[in-house]
Design a protein around this nucleic acid. Structure first.
Lengths: 146, 146
DNA sequence: TGTATAATCTATTATTATAGTAGGGTAATA
DNA sequence: TATTACCCTACTATAATAATAGATTATACA
């Protein structure tokens, strides 16, 4: 399961992607609109800034804003920031590789291949979903609802 | 990430699938051969028995054995026993459905669809991998190694 | 230049899940 | 009928998650 941090981060980024470009948005506003605990959101936005996804401005008229266009940010990179590896076992992770500690022989491990395939499928799907795509999906869903 | 319980369960089942059919294997033997803490393994095998995957026999000559042929047991059902839902968010889980507690509106949630696709891909891959398939894979990997 | 504003940093805490361990009880079989 | 091996209950250590509290720093603007 994905963590709340990842989910909150995705929600906050969708909210920011809807804004006028580069216009800073208050933590307070995102917190209220998306119902995310303010202090918790603070830490999340800070991580997104450190990862180079968001920019920030202090003082009056300050806030957070996207540093890149919405079609250049995808769900895979966001989830990796907060949840680490996307793979279900560390031995097939791409950026967070580690041998499975209980593994006797990685080379002949038959389940490794299975989890490698799953990781590739999952990463591909997450990468396809940029925040531009997510905005489009939300628009469509809202139309169908009416 | 998958839990150790799931990994140990898969390893134990592979070990049992290699045995002469219906011949009970001691917990002690599986524990030693697969390097799984014995007491921990006991609980795992018990869960597999309660799930109808394994049978057991007490007393001398007893032990655990597969109740079904290896091609009728797959990784998805095993992982569900120990890790619960395979989905990355509860709102797209098949057998363990729950609304996401922080979700404002499930109908217009754009990430739900993404995680639904990922769940379907993952489950399909896990289901393809029956324990008969895993045994075949292991054989192949051993051949290539030499 | 001062002050309100808003992000940033440092610490602490509650809760839950994981990964075991300990020790005895119970049932089947030679 | 003693042995063998499964079965059950309870406990514990560690780590991760999901927060909260309070002090600090940077910035705009009057």
């Amino acid at each position: 399961m994905i963590t709340k941090k990842s989910k909150y981060a995705i929600k906050a980024l969708i909210y920011l992607a809807k804004q006028e470009k580069m216009k800073p948005v208050l933590i307070e506003e995102i917190s209220t609109e998306e119902r995310i605990p303010k202090k918790f959101l603070e830490a999340i936005l800070l991580d997104l800034r450190k990862a180079g996804i968001l920019g920030s401005k202090k003082g009056k008229g300050g806030g957070y804003f996207l540093l890149k266009p919405a079609d250049e940010i995808n769900m895979a990179e966001v989830m990796r920031i907060f949840d680490g590896a996307i793979a279900l076992v560390p031995c097939v992770a791409h950026r967070y590789y580690e041998p499975c500690e209980e593994c006797i022989d990685e080379i002949t491990c038959p389940i490794r291949e299975v989890f490698r395939v799953i990781r590739e499928q999952t990463v591909a799907t997450l990468k396809d979903n940029t925040f531009a795509v997510l905005l489009e999906k939300e628009k469509k869903l809202r139309r169908y609802r009416k």
